[in-house]
Simulated assay, not measured.
Amino acid sequence: MARALEVENVTKVYKSSGRGIEDANLRVERGEVFGLMGPNGSGKSTLLGVVSTRISPDKGSFRVCGLDGVRERRKVRAKLGLMVDRPTHYGDLTAWANAYLFASFYGMDEKKAGRALAELFEYFDLAEYRDDKAKTFSYGMGKKLALIEAIAHDPELLLLDEPSVGLDYTSQLAYQRKIRDLASSGTAIVLASNQVDEVEALCDRVAFLHRGRIVTTGTPDELISTLEGLQRVVARLRVPVEYDPVLEVEGVRQVVTEGKDLVIHCEERSGIVADVVAALVRAGGDIVTLSVRRPNLEDVYVKLTGEALRDEDQPAG
């Protein structure tokens, strides 16, 4: 049986911005949850756009369930489910009508679509709102509706771009259970997200994108294990200060800004956190909060690229 997704040297660069993806190579197996991580502009959405056949690559090829993604677009689309990061709906149609329209596009007959949609509306707590117009929905409700539209037809490959952003706690739990259920039934899932806890919990493998290129791929445990012996100190300061004194502390490997936080990667030696705090105070820093944690995928990304995974405008993972 063919892999769910094979991407070979795919390149798509936009002349207006110089951004996109270059020479991307991926393999995603059936039943696998595969994560794509990278800051804004790193190429995650472009890569999903190519795989979904919405965007034509400048060069390279890809196959979805054995089908040529460039030459057999219509057949490929029938295998896919897609949720973009900012979904839109027909505002004057009801939620049910929007979802049914998607189901019909995928060739579902009325009876089958009705059963699948009724189950999903109930699962995502939208049953009582099914006859409300989509334009009355909150952002989170719109995200849940988009999830329903993406999975109702049982796609073989599901593409998700920041699916959990905007979901409340209960909805996130429901979404994660559904992702695990889909994977266990054989659906391959490509999840573009910088929600670090979500990716570590759900994804079998992860690829880091940096400035349009895939810099590494591995399981979350494999990637995090490369930082063995290090710890992550996160300091939020009342106002920014120059942090050069922190870099002079013995055992400090790297300092990077993530939004309003300073993240210090340092060795696990006795007294090093106190030394870091002292250096911040010497620099004039007024520490509002301080935490010490084990390294995570954000830290691996920083180590590999020297850049933060998220900027101030991106939600925390």
Results as ranks from 00 to 15, higher is better:
Arg3Glu: 02
Ala4Cys: 00
Leu5Phe: 01
Asp23Tyr: 04
Asn25Phe: 08
Glu32Gln: 14
Gly35Phe: 03
Asn40Tyr: 01
Val50His: 10
Thr53Cys: 11
Arg54Asn: 13
Asp58His: 09
Ser61Thr: 11
Gly69Trp: 03
Arg77Gly: 00
Ala78Phe: 04
Lys79Val: 06
Leu82Gly: 01
Asp92Gln: 08
Leu93Thr: 05
Trp96Lys: 01
Leu101Phe: 15
Ala103Asp: 09
Ser104Leu: 12
Phe105Gln: 09
Tyr106Thr: 09
Tyr106Asp: 01
Gly107Asp: 12
Glu110Val: 09
Arg115His: 09
Ala118Trp: 03
Leu120Lys: 08
Leu120Asp: 09
Asp131Pro: 07
Ile148Glu: 08
Ala150Phe: 12
Asp154Arg: 15
Asp154Trp: 02
Pro155Arg: 01
Leu157Phe: 06
Leu158Arg: 04
Leu167Asp: 04
Leu173Val: 14
Arg177Phe: 10
Asp181Arg: 05
Ser185Asp: 13
Ser185Glu: 14
Gly186Ser: 02
Ala188Glu: 00
Ala188Gly: 05
Gln195Lys: 08
Val199Asp: 02
Val215Gln: 05
Gly218Thr: 06
Gly218Ser: 01
Glu222His: 05
Ser225Phe: 10
Leu227Ser: 06
Leu227Cys: 11
Glu228Gly: 10
Gln231Ser: 10
Ala235Pro: 04
Ala235Val: 13
Arg236Glu: 15
Arg236Trp: 00
Leu237Gln: 08
Val239Phe: 15
Val239Ala: 15
Pro245Gly: 03
Val246Phe: 08
Val252Gly: 10
Val256Met: 10
Leu262Gln: 12
Ile264Glu: 04
Ile264Gly: 06
His265Lys: 03
Ile287Gly: 00
Val300Lys: 02
Val302Leu: 13
Leu304Gln: 03
Arg310Tyr: 13
Arg310Cys: 12
Gln314Met: 14
Gln314Arg: 05
